[in-house]
Design a protein around this nucleic acid. Sequence first.
DNA 1: TTAGGGTTAG
Length: 581
Amino acid sequence: MIAKSTTTVINTAIQKCNSLSHIKQIQSHLISSGFFQFSPSSRFKLLELTAISSYGNLSYATLIFNYINNPSTFDWNPIIRGYAQSSTPQIALTLFISMLRASQKPDAVTCSFALKACARALAKFEGYMMHSFVIRSGFMLDLLLQTTLTDLYCKVGEFGDARKVFDEMPERDVASWNALICGLAQGGFPNEALELFHRVCRMGMKADDVTVLGALSACSQMGVLKEGDKVWCYVKKERLDLKVIVCNAVIDMYCKCGFVDKAYDVFRSMSCEKNIITWNTMVMGFAMHGLGVEAIELLNEMDCVGVCPDPITYLGVLCACNHAGLVEEGHRLFNSMEEKGIVHNVKHYGTVVDLLGRAGRLNEAYEIIKSMPISPDIVLWQTLLGACNTYGNVELAEIASQKLVEMGSDSCGDYVLLSNVYASYKRWNEVGRVREVMNIKDSKKVPGFSYTEVGGVLHKFINGDQSHPCWRAIYAKLDEIMYRIKEHGYVSGTRFVLHDIGEEDKEYVLCYHSEKLAVAFGLLTTSHETPIQVIKNLRICVDCHAVIKLVSKVYNREIIVRDRARFHRFKEGTCSCRDYW
DNA sequence: TTAGGGTTAG
């Protein structure tokens, strides 16, 4: 028997560990003194520290664990927890099964780690098995497990089951609400997430930092400024702005709602210390708004105040140069990364290829791809192909298309671009051949949709959509728009339509793109001085861009479109992207 | 002796 006071001394020493070598010293002391075998609490502390602390080492923790004769639940728990939060969470589930085979009984804590592992591994089937195990073990009344289950079902996309677990909870605390709010926000249901946030506030429950993170993410996705403002007021009232993670989310929200100035105000007036994510979010915000010079200035400021940029900072700055057309600066920054100790990743290559490609420097872009020490991905070849389409480079377009086929890309956009390049040289035989392959492959297109907020209600439009209650009026308005802008020189850009249909029909397909429907609806339902705000899931197409520019002039209306890549602010016939996107 | 919910990315 070991005296309790001795155990306390040992455990205090373990807690003071701050390096792996320190852990090893303690371990050897525990083994030689017999504590490893006879003091379960010391062994637990040692395992926990080795498996989950920042200076620990999971492989080493596994070595220690394998040294234990007949491990107890208290020995299994820290090792399962360690793997659950590692990059290989599926190992935690294998260990959970090994534990059952070794006839050790998992407790509610073991289950919480196993559920976490399922969520991180997106293991839906194993998640259902674990849920059943939790019920059979009699742990279903555990509030923490119910919350973990709610989170798990959201992460694997089973929102119905998440809702069921949540609705059946006898009592809920703020973390349970957060699991559902954040789960819905991250799972593509921002509207529902925001509604729940308001419900939490109405119930008089104190929303905490995690709740507002979920709400802010929802506002960012939908681009709803008024809602975002409300959350920001709540954040200030509850002093949640003392948390850097919350400020970062607020900056991101204002950028994505189209108000980079407000984001910058928050960035400048933060009362807590900025972290690298704060800087990166602001840089990315500038990029999104085509403010290349501002992004570069921020990078320089980081250098002045001694903050080390990371690969994401450089990605943001390169992206900003790309959107602002700062070709030389972007190219120079890309080349300077190595001396700053930052290794180029595939996204950096993607951005610089885009940058050079848009500037017509196709051969340089291709040389960069050829010199890459890592494999180019599908997006990168698509970027080059896009530039080939713009500049009519058949030779490189064929190379990029061939690579895309080899890589198994089945995006119909690839075929459209290649056939457009052939079409621009009137090489109709090749156009026909590409179209044929495209039909055989039955390439799928991601459906485009846009939404706009009018009177606090979000209206969603899909290409060619007739589901909106006012669709007849919207289509009539669009006909009027097309008629009026044609008087100002608009010619339909039918070469961007994919389908093999007659010219008139092509015009029809283009005409009812979701962003045009949203703009027509905005013109119908909002007053003259209100800017129309539209959010699109894909990049805006060339034809819609041309149409909206003219609409902003003919109807004298400001129109702001956030597409997948950036913001376009249309005013008096021009766009803030200067047609460079 | 141990558990739940979380911000940036072509």
